[in-house]
Design a protein around this nucleic acid. Sequence first.
DNA 1: ATAAACTTTCAATAATTTTTGAAAGTTTAA
DNA 2: TTAAACTTTCAAAAATTATTGAAAGTTTAT
Lengths: 168, 168
Amino acid sequence: MELAAAKLKFIEAWGKLGSEWGINRTMAQVHALLLISPEALTTEEIMENLSISRGNANMTLRDLIGWGLIEKQHKAGERKEYFFADKDVWNIARQVAKERKKRELEPVLKVLNELSAVTGDEKDPELITFKKSVADINKLAGNVDKTLETMLKAEESWFWGSVLKVFK
Amino acid sequence: MELAAAKLKFIEAWGKLGSEWGINRTMAQVHALLLISPEALTTEEIMENLSISRGNANMTLRDLIGWGLIEKQHKAGERKEYFFADKDVWNIARQVAKERKKRELEPVLKVLNELSAVTGDEKDPELITFKKSVADINKLAGNVDKTLETMLKAEESWFWGSVLKVFK
DNA sequence: ATAAACTTTCAATAATTTTTGAAAGTTTAA
DNA sequence: TTAAACTTTCAAAAATTATTGAAAGTTTAT
């Protein structure tokens, strides 16, 4: 396969994966484009490459910066802003884990804790089932949270080394 | 907090979490409702409880069965079908991991492998960057895949026991 | 100060996803 | 059979989400 075709395929696959995981398809595609680009790109170049509008490009780039996945770069003597992606895949994974933990896992843990305090007739099967489900989910979410916490601090090789030992 | 209010809050939170992770909100809500219900429920009851239409309820229930998260139950001497959710949270996590691995991770791994075979001028920075990114993602995805594989086979306590040892 | 180069905003529009509900389909009992 | 009870389908409508593009805003050089 030729590079040009491979790039298109990669961008498409990354976009699809993103949309399946609740990430805007265009955002994932812009990220993909920057990931495989050796040089930082301008808004203009990104617009052309992906056939998207200026407004869309601008908002998407802003979001990606908010996720900590890309950065702006200024070139000496140039007015234009250039964008480039962190190419370290472990950093990317950590960054995504960190943001989703903060944006989604933590709010859910908060709600679950509130729900643990539900009151009522302790003999009511409805209440018993409810409390059991909430407690079980809470426990699982807590373990996920701790594991992510470890991952955030860890070096890639150490993390996978440790986790994959589970096979022995 | 009263049980009735807590239920609503739980259903809402579960629905929101689902939608953030690419799962239809209604589907997550139906799942939440069944999770906290000690008894199996009929389509009718689910429709009323969540104020959704018959068609929506039917499709959503079918999807949940497809995900292996709920099952039909037949009660002796009754025409109606009842639905109930597996209450074991570890089973739920495994089931979701299994389906998403199959539906999303595996297709991506397949594409990444195809993309590894890209050809071109080995001195071209574009090609070098592309190959590096694809290889790195491939490696990470492979590790995730192996870890999920282990999780699918594992007992909850053993799995978390092993993974959380990483802290010591 | 001016204007060119560039970035951001946001109301309108388009695309996508979800939901509805009535009609068609199926199963069971008599 | 027939009809009642129940389930499924799917085209149309509604709701949600993403995108456009032109106007407004900002920065820099002169």
